[in-house]
Design a protein around this nucleic acid. Structure first.
Lengths: 160, 160
DNA sequence: TATTGTTATACTCTATAACTATA
DNA sequence: TATAGTTATAGAGTATAACAATA
């Protein structure tokens, strides 16, 4: 009751136009609501900074994952990123058309292939990873490094 | 080097098929990656439990927000939920067609209208809010209540 | 001239099923 | 019979611009 906004509100019971912000406190108790809102905000910055590189968040993830796991297979990527195979197939086709990845037949299983980055792929990855790290820190500037670590490890408990 | 998995790996330098999980440690340092993965997981459960009620997460948010803020206008919802007006217009049309919301002309501004829930709307909201709360807790069962609160307040610093 | 809300349109993203080729 | 990967298709979600009505 000490909140001046609340006092003003009750002193002026029926304003013609409600200028007070609506109460979203219930929604804010929901983890899914907060993760969604935070994702939207971060991806907004991501799209802005990545425009020149033509990578969306998922493409970036796959590029980075292949770069750090040379020889990985499509199936491994799908499992690690919880991505349906058809979605990855299209995405790999895009990266392939841009000559960022290379597919090498496996001797053990002729259905599968090992994925790695081309020189262009490595160059692009080396260029964008620091930018993404930077943009992430900026987008979550209200968090200390420790708090960011905390959020990350807590969220990981939800999806695995 | 004490990790047995790592030792096995280096003792067997070129396995025909790589059974070890790929290294996604870099991606996991990115807040956007973790919020996205957590959202996907929670929404998966959401869709499953809400199937019978025919509400997606955004529709649920709007239903709940109107229910707790009778008389709210479309513009207020868009601002509070960072939602573009055309998206809300379509969504309100859906809720209207299901007779869950009611629009009342405002005397102050004949362009705008006050939104509230119908009896059916209130009934549905009373029914689904506890289910969503429950499903949220289940989906984040690896978190204590304090940790869930912590995640929520930390994430809110990102999007506002 | 700016604002509230709607309509129209196109585009991206995603999920599903059906397919091939191998195992 | 099951698995790796692809293709095809449709559906959901989202962004943009243009619009009408009112301020």
């Amino acid at each position: 009751m000490d909140n001046p906004a609340v006092s003003d509100r009750s002193a002026n019971a029926a304003p013609a136009v409600d200028l007070t912000a609506p109460d979203s406190s219930f929604l804010r108790t929901l983890v899914g609501y907060n993760t969604r809102r935070a994702t939207l905000r971060i991806f907004e910055v991501f799209h802005d900074r990545m425009r020149d590189f033509g990578l969306n968040p998922v493409e970036f993830s796959v590029l980075s994952l292949i770069g750090r796991n040379a020889g990985i297979t499509a199936r491994q990527i799908c499992e690690e990123l919880a991505m349906p195979p058809p979605k990855l197939a299209k995405l790999l086709a895009v990266l392939d058309r841009r000559a960022l990845i290379h597919r090498e037949a496996t001797q053990a299983d002729r259905r599968a292939f090992h994925l790695s980055l081309t020189q262009d792929g490595h160059r692009l990855r080396a260029q964008v990873e620091p930018i993404v790290q930077q943009l992430e820190v900026e987008a979550s500037a209200q968090l200390t490094d420790r708090q960011r670590d905390m959020v990350n490890s807590l969220l990981q408990r939800i999806y695995r």
